[in-house]
Design a protein around this nucleic acid. Structure first.
Lengths: 252, 252
DNA sequence: CTGCTTCTTGCACAAACATGCAAAACATGC
DNA sequence: GCATGTTTTGCATGTTTGTGCAAGAAGCAG
């Protein structure tokens, strides 16, 4: 087991339960308690937890986030979601992928031996796919929106209208079991709607903080979600609601 | 087994599993662990993974790839050309910029206080401009050509046809005082021709090795070149020919 | 205070590491 | 054809890093 993995697992447990015990972690990982204590000491120094007698507790969320790997937090989580999401893919499929950091992570996690046709209006998704030799990449052009990192507007809509896809990876949205998928921007929502209309199924991968949030512009109803990729620690009650609407739940 | 193949396989495993072990890769590939470590070191330097003790883990997707001025050599020269080329710009202009590493350098050299409208079919140019707040950026979409790094084809042509520009920064081409501007690829040449048709003037910035070379597909006659940006060491005889055809010469 | 657990520190050892070097494979030029 | 230079690889070398163990210090409960 890599040291880094162990740290990651400890972070997971801290996020899920708020505290960890040194002895318990030691037997779980199959290492000595000394090693766990050393891990906890390092993580505490990095501000990722607070050391207490017998183990450690989750760090205060507002205090010190010195290492923000730009693009923000939850990098590890998003990459795990991405790896789970690409498991839905198989050769020969065609995809729409829109913007958002999670979708960028998904794009870079796509195995290079899959033969896919991918259309995207996101610059970072396109960049991530630009060296996938077997991917037929279609860039959906138009006016570039700096805040979203994607192309939007009439030209983009026209480009989407000419295409169809098996799956639509819908990103950076609000998500709610009753209101469905919602977006924060009118032009953004319009493009998402067009992509949803022209694809057979919608895939959404979200971190816990996006679950049960809503934004002003409606994109698609909850019943339109075919696959929902979530963290292992996602609240079961919320997931059940989506499942009743026909969504298939996948855990990262 | 080729070094490059090995790198590719490592990237695949990283995308699929999120981590790799040096020893495991060594036995799988039938090479020494030293070789694998060298691979991982190089890939980490290129931002394709993060090195940890015992192996490597997948890199954060958003951190990497600023503007990969790959092609490696002549980086300094291209930056000098770029700085000279952006001197031609002034606020309020609209531009076409197509592909090539020199154009990517030009894009990243554009001052952030210029208010411009820029349309490009190049991913790296678009990425370089994605944080220029005053630039209205229009992405010319279409089928992405991996070798060129640009979008080409019918969709791209249609998008170009809707636009006009003051200047067209034409890149990655052959250049000859009698034959004019030529391209290596049919689809590429088509897009360049469309951009040339819809712009008032053509700007070409080239390193010495591109001067007096020709490619199969004709893009524009030598008389269409308005500005030619060259190195100080460019052969005077060749420059004189272009000057006779009406080009304005700028030295980097 | 006494006994217990948990923690830190120092140390030893093995695994992983970077570095330098030489052999082999390859391309290049005379 | 032969010499030369470059790239890649494996091996030998010291060095660094992670880990476990032991001993002492520090926290906690009765």
């Amino acid at each position: 087991m890599l040291t880094d993995e162990r740290h990651q697992l400890i972070r997971d447990r801290l996020a899920a339960e708020g505290r960890v015990l040194a002895g318990e972690l030691a037997s779980r990982f199959g290492v000595s308690e000394d090693t766990v204590r050393r891990d906890l000491r390092e993580m505490a120094k990095a501000g990722q937890c607070r050391r207490v007698y017998g183990g450690a507790v989750a760090a205060a969320p507002f205090a010190a986030a010195p290492v923000s790997l730009r693009g923000g937090h939850a990098v590890e989580e998003k990459m795990r979601l991405a790896r789970a999401a690409v498991a839905l893919l198989s050769s020969g499929q065609s995809l729409f992928i829109d913007g958002g950091t999670t979708n960028a992570a998904i794009a870079s996690a796509i195995p290079r031996d899959l033969e896919l046709t991918i259309a995207t209006n996101s610059l970072s998704v396109a960049s991530a796919l630009s060296d996938h030799a077997l991917v037929e990449l279609i860039v959906l052009g138009g006016r570039f929106d700096r805040d979203l990192g994607t192309c939007v507007g009439a030209d983009t809509l026209a480009a989407v209208a000419q295409l169809g896809a098996d799956l639509f990876f819908l990103g950076s949205c609000g998500l709610d079991a009753s209101r469905g998928v919602t977006a924060f921007d009118s032009a953004e929502a319009e493009v998402k709607r067009a992509m949803a209309r022209n694809s057979a199924g919608i895939v959404i991968a979200v971190t816990n903080d996006k679950l049960a949030t809503a934004a002003p512009y409606r994109v698609a109803g909850p019943e339109a979600i075919r696959h929902l990729v979530v963290e292992k620690t996602a609240p079961a009650a919320i997931l059940a609601d989506f499942e009743h609407q026909g969504a298939e739940i996948h855990f990262a």
